[in-house]
């Protein structure tokens, strides 16, 4: 299997949050992550961003009173 470039990986990581990825796509990502720390970080950060957005309505600036 040919290694995907980081650019394509970042695109797929984002799409993985919006649609179900195919088996081939998931395998290609896993292979790439095994070898690329930057993309591993990107993937973690994208999932963190989703958690942060879910938490925003409750955690966004509370009034002090």
């Amino acid at each position: 299997m040919k290694m995907l470039p980081c650019r394509e990986v970042s695109r797929l990581v984002s799409q993985g949050l919006d649609r179900e990825l195919g088996l081939g796509e998931r395998l290609a990502l896993r292979l790439h992550f095994a070898l690329c720390e930057g993309c591993r970080n990107f993937d973690r950060q994208m999932r963190f961003l989703r958690r942060a957005m879910r938490a925003l309505p409750e955690r966004g600036e509370r009034e002090s009173g």
Partner: peptide
């Protein structure tokens, strides 16, 4: 297609979710 600036890791990001 490589990162110009590969993303660096974020230190314990979930701790940020405790911070206003």
């Amino acid at each position: 297609g490589h990162w110009r600036d590969p993303p660096a890791g974020w230190d314990d990001p979930d701790r940020a979710l405790e911070q206003k």
